[in-house]
Amino acid sequence: MSENQKEPQYKLRWNEDLRNKVMNSAKANNRSINQEIIVRLEESFQEDIEKYEDALKNAKLEFLLKELALRMGVFKITVSSTEDEYIQRQKEIEEMKRKELLVDDKKAP
């Protein structure tokens, strides 16, 4: 390695089509081909980290929802993404509450 070259080099074998894509992208972003490759690689690792973090947040949220449902006496919870299903779940919960109130009223002296 020469004095001017501080970073290690890596010989890359790639097809002409991919090289042209990288060259065009580098020109569009005002970067060298080397800079373009480095930026794209770094972004791909960041995307992997973000996907992992999102999956972890979703898993924690699902766990907390299930724990909350168990503590409330609801033994099955379904997390839905549609508004109709959400509204139906709310109606079911209200019906359960209403039935519990009726049972409590019957127990009252």
Rank of each mutant, 00 (worst) to 15 (best):
D17Q: 13
D17R: 15
D17P: 03
L18K: 12
N20T: 10
N20W: 10
K21W: 06
K21V: 01
N24V: 00
K27N: 12
K27E: 12
A28G: 07
S32T: 13
S32E: 08
S32Q: 06
S32Y: 05
Q35V: 00
I37K: 11
I37C: 12
V39C: 11
R40C: 06
R40I: 00
L41G: 08
F45K: 09
Q46E: 11
D48H: 06
I49L: 11
I49V: 07
I49T: 09
E50K: 09
Y52W: 05
D54W: 02
D54Y: 04
K57L: 03
K57H: 08
K57W: 01
A59C: 04
L61C: 05
E62D: 10
E62P: 01
F63H: 14
L64S: 14
L65Y: 12
K66N: 08
E67M: 04
A69N: 07
A69T: 02
R71E: 15
K76I: 00
K76N: 12
I77K: 10
I77G: 03
T78R: 13
T78K: 15
T78Q: 14
E83K: 15
E83P: 06
D84Y: 09
I87G: 08
I87F: 13
I87K: 15
I87P: 09
Q88C: 05
R89H: 11
R89P: 02
K91A: 10
K91N: 14
I93H: 14
I93L: 14
M96F: 07
K97P: 02
K97L: 09
R98D: 13
K99L: 10
K99Q: 13
L101K: 15
L102N: 10
L102D: 14
L102M: 09
V103W: 07
